[in-house]
Design a protein around this nucleic acid. Structure first.
Lengths: 258, 258
DNA sequence: TCAATGTCGATTGTCGACAATCGTCAAGCT
DNA sequence: AGCTTGACGATTGTCGACAATCGACATTGA
């Protein structure tokens, strides 16, 4: 038993530090290609050549390979062993559905949280702290939109964490890493670039906080769901514009809680 | 417009052929390390060094890197950029929960399918074909357990495909690729090595088929759920033995449909 | 004594080159 | 003509080496 160990001992996992804005190169490439796919620059089933992507991005094939595996996780590419990667063109309604599913899940989490007195109190306390951080970032330049977004995310995580349903929490948090929603989430900083939008978002979260304090489960559910619907509509509108399509109003429905 | 194009044109995605047993090297490594983690050879939070794994597996670090990303997908490792990979030790109850979640979802799918007349008829027809394949493989040597397992999987997929709930289908099929369940599924061939076990499984599927023909939703649900519970119990028992633990009987409950 | 800073070893990230594999096409055979 | 077989080109898979980065320790200064 040696107390002064030189190498990190097994069993304790180091804390992951907040990555300010330094995404790894594979992440940058993945985001870039993902954006191209979502914008419609790649058609459905179109091939993604490693060499080609490496040259356009100015790196070797190694990081590109890793980026392609990430795209496969997001459902934006299909990888066939020894045969290459193919783009998966997502229609706007599939993307809309990803938001709708999340809106439904998050709404349920908010409602369940509002029902549980002690859990709601804990969540509110943590949310206040996170929102204070976000508030302090309102006037920062557009480059720091990412920091604001992280604060908002931390606020939302408080709801999921305390809602009392482990599988809902896991589904909601996993989506950030795994599915299409994760990519959408990463594109949100573009959404938070102006102080106006930040204030708008904070107003929503203030209302959600109030609903939780008042233990108003229906208001909490509706507000959180509508906030996600709002993001959905902005994303769909901008994607439709990029693709040169007409945004389908049917996709932007606020379906009732049926 | 040139009809005789030499390179595959964009838009058409080639069919993925069934990979008989030739797993790629990264897959082999991932399976190997995954087994080691599940067996308890790696403790929770223990570090996974690329160089070290490369040497034990007799390959370079490239494939090992890819295998580690796969393990991250399965939830068996945590990757910290520039800091390495750490094993995630899964307790037996977490693994049990993965099976239970799948049992619940699959049960719902079976019940919903039994309710829909036309869909059930289509599913039954496809299942008969798949089960015929499985039946023909009963007496094959243990090395071909994988083929038998694929036939069984195809049978189950018929239920998910026609159950009428897209999100349930997606959740059930995604699990095979993404979560822990995928690893468990890959370990099932060990389970199908003897003709006895194969016959046992086919008996279950025969009963499920009969329940669907009779449109008996409760029987279909219960049978499919119990089949997954059976697999769960075998996996848990063998894992407990490998880890030198006592299998907790509480984990092997057949919870009622509440 | 304690905090800040510089240096070092270990490990991951990236690169370019080579090997293996797949799809395609052409020639040859039945 | 239709099918099989062989070789070619293109692309992915793998390798070994180098560069960049991180954590830990030693040193310095207050």
């Amino acid at each position: 038993m040696d107390g002064t160990q030189t190498t990190p001992r097994t069993g304790e996992l180091p804390r992951a530090r907040r990555r300010t804005s330094a995404l790894t190169i594979p992440e940058q490439i993945a985001n870039r290609v993902a954006a191209a796919i979502l914008n419609g620059e790649y058609r459905d089933g179109e091939r993604l050549r490693e060499q080609e992507l490496a040259e356009t991005c100015g790196v070797s094939r190694g990081p590109v390979r890793e980026a392609l595996r990430a795209l496969e996780r997001y459902g934006l590419a299909i990888l066939l062993p020894r045969r290459g990667a193919y783009a998966v063109g997502l229609s706007l309604d599939v993307i809309a559905e990803a938001f709708n599913a999340r809106a439904a899940l998050a709404g349920i989490a908010a409602r369940q949280l509002a029902r549980r007195e002690a859990a709601a109190a804990r969540a509110v306390a943590e949310m206040e702290a996170a929102l204070a951080v976000a508030t302090s970032l309102i006037e920062r330049p557009a480059e720091e939109a990412h920091a604001f977004q992280l604060a908002i995310r931390d606020t939302a995580l408080c709801i999921y964490r305390h809602c009392g349903a482990g599988h809902i929490e896991r589904a909601l948090t996993d989506q950030v890493d795994r599915s299409i929603w994760g990519l959408m989430w990463r594109s949100q900083p573009l959404d938070f670039q102006t102080p106006e939008r930040r204030r708008e978002s904070l107003a929503f979260w203030g209302a959600i906080l109030a609903a939780l304090r008042a233990r108003d489960e229906h208001a909490a559910e509706r507000l959180l769901r509508d906030d996600i619907f709002n993001t959905r509509d902005r994303v769909l509108a901008s994607l439709a514009a990029l693709r040169g399509e007409q945004p389908d109003p049917a996709l932007m429905m606020r379906e009732p809680a049926g």
